[in-house]
Simulated assay, not measured.
Amino acid sequence: MSQKDRDYSEKRDFIRMPVECTVQLLDGERQIQGKCLDLSSTGMQVVAATSLNAGDRLRVLIASQHPTLKGLDAETEVIRVATLEDGQQSLGLAILAMT
């Protein structure tokens, strides 16, 4: 079952932690800087100046601020896109794999 086919209530079964940090989105060779607003064990919400669509796959990198902790490196799928007033996109990303 794809992320898009999951029941709405199932998507909310995981605690979301509010986070405000810089993320790097890798869309093939294109690198896009964005801001992560919240994070859960299965996904995240990111705001960035992009032109992505539901179903697009991205690699997301969040650098660690602690030298002994590894940063986040995740393969994701765009499951929700909303265009904001400033032209940026709010992206709902499902985490497919952590590397």
Score class of each variant (00 low, 15 high):
residue 2 S to V: 08
residue 2 S to G: 06
residue 4 K to N: 11
residue 5 D to I: 00
residue 5 D to P: 00
residue 6 R to F: 03
residue 8 Y to D: 12
residue 9 S to T: 14
residue 10 E to H: 13
residue 10 E to V: 06
residue 10 E to D: 14
residue 12 R to G: 04
residue 13 D to W: 01
residue 14 F to R: 00
residue 14 F to K: 00
residue 15 I to E: 14
residue 15 I to H: 14
residue 17 M to T: 10
residue 17 M to E: 13
residue 17 M to N: 09
residue 19 V to P: 06
residue 23 V to Q: 06
residue 23 V to G: 06
residue 26 L to I: 14
residue 26 L to C: 09
residue 26 L to M: 14
residue 26 L to R: 15
residue 30 R to E: 08
residue 31 Q to T: 08
residue 31 Q to C: 11
residue 32 I to N: 02
residue 33 Q to Y: 05
residue 34 G to Y: 01
residue 34 G to D: 12
residue 35 K to W: 01
residue 36 C to H: 01
residue 36 C to A: 15
residue 37 L to K: 06
residue 38 D to G: 12
residue 38 D to K: 12
residue 39 L to I: 13
residue 40 S to E: 14
residue 41 S to C: 06
residue 41 S to L: 12
residue 42 T to G: 10
residue 43 G to D: 02
residue 43 G to L: 13
residue 44 M to V: 09
residue 45 Q to H: 04
residue 46 V to E: 04
residue 46 V to G: 01
residue 48 A to L: 04
residue 49 A to H: 06
residue 50 T to C: 07
residue 53 N to H: 13
residue 54 A to C: 13
residue 55 G to W: 02
residue 55 G to C: 02
residue 56 D to E: 09
residue 56 D to S: 03
residue 57 R to N: 13
residue 58 L to N: 09
residue 59 R to M: 08
residue 60 V to R: 01
residue 62 I to L: 07
residue 64 S to Y: 07
residue 64 S to T: 02
residue 64 S to L: 03
residue 65 Q to W: 04
residue 66 H to A: 10
residue 67 P to Y: 08
residue 68 T to S: 14
residue 69 L to V: 09
residue 69 L to T: 12
residue 70 K to D: 10
residue 70 K to P: 06
residue 71 G to P: 10
residue 71 G to V: 00
residue 72 L to Q: 02
residue 73 D to E: 13
residue 73 D to M: 03
residue 73 D to C: 09
residue 73 D to R: 02
residue 76 T to N: 09
residue 79 I to M: 11
residue 79 I to K: 02
residue 81 V to T: 12
residue 83 T to D: 11
residue 85 E to A: 15
residue 85 E to C: 04
residue 85 E to Q: 13
residue 85 E to F: 11
residue 86 D to E: 09
residue 86 D to Q: 03
residue 87 G to M: 04
residue 87 G to K: 03
residue 88 Q to S: 15
residue 91 L to M: 11
residue 91 L to Y: 04
residue 92 G to A: 11
residue 92 G to F: 15
residue 93 L to A: 08
residue 95 I to R: 01
